[in-house]
Structures are given as structure tokens and as C-alpha cells.
């Protein structure tokens, strides 16, 4: 893991906490935490674009949804689809979609990038809404969870809630480690440069568009991983998975959690997801409360939750990058 040791310890403790949770927590919350961890993967993937490459995508949910649809379409009625087939196909499909969308999008920047990514996501949204073969507005059911094993021998039964929990937790950690590795590698140095000063990065000898495109594809693929897990977990996928509200939500997790740190967006997803759940119990009009909460955070917590944590903990060196002004 990256960062100074207090942060590493905190993150290890958090993973440890998540690892023991299924044995102490209420089954309802186990289900909820699976959902939150999936959103955490989704938010981290967007942060690679927003927090590290400087590209604000308002259509990131497209890849989340496309992956889910691929899983739903692949899974036969009788079930038994091997994860060694399902996962690569879903990830490769999402990567290709991200390559196409990214190829068009990285030519633009700023608000035009925000809008063109939104436009592509809307195209995908309406494609699934208007094609009855794909379930239209009702969406599709995933007939069965993928089979994890070799030959007939089962490694992990995803139908079991605890197994699915640990499967998701494992992928959350793997995603974090992979992204941290990419960010420390030469590629990560270049995309950070692009975010800080693209023209100068180009002048130093980097074909920046190519780097932005690859970053877009990587982010899309990890969003696909999250979408795969979501569809497998709920056994359902619908156009709302790729709608702009979903893209807006994940954007919110990243900003509220704190851009430019990998743990920030996960924190954002957990905090917002839990609040959503609490408000939902409290009042039928929880969106009203959520709205006021979001506004309050924007006005009073400019660096997100991670910024607050960093300020309180006086963490040095590994704190969040400066938010853009």
C-alpha cells in the first residue's frame, strides 16, 4: 500500500474491520456493505480519471451498466456460467466500449468532455430502454450467479452471501492495489502531469491524448468490474444502472470523499451509501435531506471527507492532492 504508515495502518485496520464484519454484523447490513464495497470500486475507477488524469466524466455509469447487461445476456437460464468466462468477457466488452467512447471524448476538454461523456452514456441508456430484446425499461434478470471453480470442483459459492462478501472485499482490495501500482508506475506519473498541466506534459515529449485514452479505458474497465459485481449480486440490471443519475451519484462519491486519493472515493461511497440508507429509514423524502447534505458539504467541506480526515489527523505527505481551483 502507498502512503505514510499511519494511513497504511488505518487502511489495514479498515480492511480488517470489513473482514470480520460478516460474523458480527446484521445480515441486512452484510448485504448493504457488499453494495457499498461495489460502489467503492466504481468510485475508485472514476477517481483515476477525475483525481489523477483531470478528466471529469459524467457518463461513467455507462460502463457500470454495460458490464451488467453483458453478464445478464451471457448467463444461461440453467445457470452454471463459469466466472473464468464471464468476467473476462464483461471486462473486455467494457474496455472496448470505453475505447470507443474515449477515442471520441479525449479530443475535447473541460465542460465539453463532461458533456460528450454524458451524451454517450445517454445513447447507451436509450439503446437499452428502446430495445425490448434487452428488457427495455424493465431491464434483465441475471439467471444465476457465476460459478467459481475448476471443472466440477467449486472454489467459492457466490450464492452464499458470506462468500460473495469476501469475494467483493477481495476485489476491492485488489482494485485498490492495482490502481496504486499503476499510479506509482511511469504511466501514473504521466497522467498526474496531464492533470496538473497538460500542455507542458505534451511539450516534455508525451503524446498526452494517448495517455488520456488509456486512462479512460482502464477506468472504464474497473467500472465494468463494479458493474459485473452489482449485476451478479442483485441478479438484475436495468437502464437506470447507466442513467445520468447513477453517473452523478458516483461523481458525488468521488468529490465528497476526496479526489486524488484512492481511499477517499471509497470513504465517500460508504458515507453517502450509509446516509442514504439511514435517511431512507427516517423519512420517505430522504432525497431532500441528501440534497441539503450535499450542499452543506460543498459549502463547508471543500476537500471532501478525506480532506477533513487529513486535516484532523494532520497526516503529512500522503494527504490528498490539492483540489483544482
Amino acid at each position: 500500500m502507498t502512503g505514510p504508515w499511519p494511513l497504511r495502518l488505518t487502511l489495514l485496520a479498515a480492511v480488517g474491520g470489513l473482514a470480520v464484519f460478516p460474523w458480527v454484523g446484521d445480515p441486512f447490513y452484510v448485504e448493504l456493505v457488499i453494495h457499498l464495497m461495489i460502489l467503492g470500486i466504481f468510485a475508485m475507477s472514476l477517481d483515476l480519471l477525475m483525481g489523477y488524469t483531470g478528466l471529469v466524466s459524467f457518463g461513467h455509469a455507462a460502463f457500470f451498466g454495460i458490464s451488467g447487461y453483458l453478464l445478464a445476456l451471457m448467463t444461461p437460464e440453467s445457470g452454471g456460467l463459469s466466472i473464468w468466462l464471464a468476467l473476462p468477457v464483461c471486462l473486455a466488452g467494457t474496455a472496448v466500449a470505453a475505447l470507443v467512447v474515449g477515442w471520441f471524448s479525449v479530443r475535447t476538454s473541460g465542460i465539453y468532455f463532461i458533456m460528450i461523456t454524458l451524451a454517450f452514456a445517454q445513447m447507451a441508456f436509450f439503446f437499452f430502454v428502446e430495445h425490448q430484446d434487452f428488457g427495455g425499461t424493465d431491464g434483465l434478470f441475471v439467471a444465476d450467479k457465476p460459478f467459481v471453480g475448476f471443472g466440477g470442483w467449486q472454489l467459492l459459492d457466490l450464492r452464499d452471501e458470506h462468500s460473495f462478501y469476501f469475494f467483493t472485499l477481495g476485489l476491492l482490495v485488489v482494485t485498490y492495489l492495482l490502481l496504486a501500482m499503476i499510479l506509482r508506475a511511469p504511466f501514473g506519473q504521466v497522467i498526474r502531469g496531464i492533470r496538473a498541466n497538460e500542455a507542458r506534459t505534451r511539450a516534455l515529449g508525451y503524446p498526452t491524448q494517448r495517455y488520456k485514452l488509456i486512462s479512460f479505458v482502464i477506468a472504464g474497465t474497473f467500472a465494468g468490474l463494479a458493474g459485473f459485481l452489482e449485476a451478479a449480486h442483485t441478479e438484475y440490471v436495468s437502464p437506470s444502472h447507466l442513467g445520468w443519475h447513477e453517473s452523478g451519484l458516483v461523481l458525488m462519491y468521488v468529490i465528497l470523499g476526496g479526489m486524488g486519493t484512492l481511499y477517499g472515493p471509497v470513504l465517500g461511497a460508504f458515507v453517502m451509501g450509509l446516509l442514504h440508507d439511514q435517511f431512507q429509514d427516517l423519512t420517505e423524502h430522504f432525497n431532500l435531506v441528501m440534497g441539503f447534505f450535499v450542499i452543506a458539504v460543498v459549502l463547508f467541506l471543500p476537500d471532501g471527507v478525506a480532506g477533513l480526515v487529513a486535516r484532523l489527523g494532520r497526516a503529512r505527505g500522503g494527504g490528498p492532492a490539492d483540489p483544482p481551483r
Binding site: 477525475m50 459524467f58 468529490i255 460543498v298 483544482p324
Partner: peptide, 17 residues
């Protein structure tokens, strides 16, 4: 004087309300 992102977020909050 803030980044566009925060405007997007705040006005998204307004939509919810």
C-alpha cells in the same frame, strides 16, 4: 471562484431537493 466540479455537485444537490 470554485472549480466547476463543485458547481456541478451543488446544483446536483439542488436537483435532489
Amino acid at each position: 471562484s470554485r472549480d466547476h466540479l463543485y458547481q456541478v455537485l451543488l446544483t446536483y444537490g439542488l436537483i435532489l431537493i
